[in-house]
Computed example of a mutant assay.
Amino acid sequence: MEKTIKEMALEIAALLEDGKGQDVTVLDVSKLNSWTDFFVIATISSGPHWQGLYKSVKDYVKDTDLEIHQTRNKAPQGDEWNLIDLGPIVVHLMSEEARGFYELEKLWHAGEKIKG
């Protein structure tokens, strides 16, 4: 039986928690935009930490119909906020400072919080 996008978003969230991502949240934003269905948001502690989590997501994607889309950022990606665009799921790996500053959960408050 094929997994739903929601199930995959929750599995990615579990992967991030296993990799010591903090305060992992999954938001259903499918009714709020046309470009993605779920945000998976996690707080990371360092550059090597996000790189390790990115590798976990990349390995997970190999066994699914998802693929990583290259993103074009106006600012270079650093250790503050890294985005992994999987199409129907967008993973946000953010430092504590960036997460507090951008407050994605408040910005997308109309989305349904399904984890976190």
Results as ranks from 00 to 15, higher is better:
S95M: 04
T43E: 07
D37R: 11
G47L: 02
S56M: 15
I5G: 06
L86M: 07
I41P: 13
H69P: 01
N33E: 05
K106H: 03
T43P: 07
D18E: 12
I12E: 08
E105F: 00
E7H: 01
F101W: 11
I68C: 15
D37S: 01
D59M: 13
L32Y: 03
A42S: 09
I114Q: 06
V29H: 15
M8R: 11
T36K: 06
T25D: 07
F39I: 11
Y54K: 08
D65Q: 05
S45H: 06
E103P: 10
Q22Y: 00
E112L: 12
G116T: 00
N33H: 05
E80D: 14
Q22M: 09
E2Y: 13
K55M: 13
L27R: 12
V40R: 04
A42D: 09
D28E: 09
Y54C: 01
D37L: 09
V91A: 09
E80N: 13
Q70H: 10
A13R: 05
S56I: 14
W35A: 12
K58E: 10
V91S: 15
H49V: 03
G116L: 00
T71P: 00
D65E: 03
I44N: 04
G19Y: 10
E105V: 03
L27M: 07
A110H: 13
K3H: 15
E112G: 01
D85R: 08
Y54V: 06
Q51L: 10
E112K: 14
E103G: 04
H49Y: 02
Q77C: 11
V91E: 05
Y102D: 09
Y54T: 08
D23M: 03
I44W: 03
K106Q: 08
G116Q: 02
I84V: 12
I89P: 14
K31T: 13
A13I: 01
D18K: 14
Y102N: 13
L66W: 00
P76E: 05
K58N: 09
Q70Y: 13
D65M: 03
E112P: 00
L86Q: 13
M94F: 14
W35M: 06
V90H: 09
D59C: 03
K6M: 02
M8F: 01
D23F: 10
S95R: 02
K115V: 04
S45E: 08
T43V: 07
D28G: 15
K31E: 06
L32W: 06
K115S: 03
H92I: 00
K62G: 10
Q70N: 15
S46I: 00
T43S: 11
N33G: 15
G47M: 05
E105I: 02
F101E: 04
V57K: 08
G21D: 08
T43D: 02
L83K: 07
V29T: 11
Q22T: 14
E7Q: 14
D85H: 09
K6N: 06
Q70M: 11
F39V: 06
K55G: 05
K6A: 05
G78M: 12
V40M: 04
T71L: 11
N82C: 02
P48N: 13
E67L: 10
Q77S: 13
L107M: 11
V90N: 15
T4C: 09
H69A: 04
E17L: 07
H109S: 10
K115T: 13
T25S: 11
G52D: 00
E17P: 02
W81V: 12
I5Q: 12
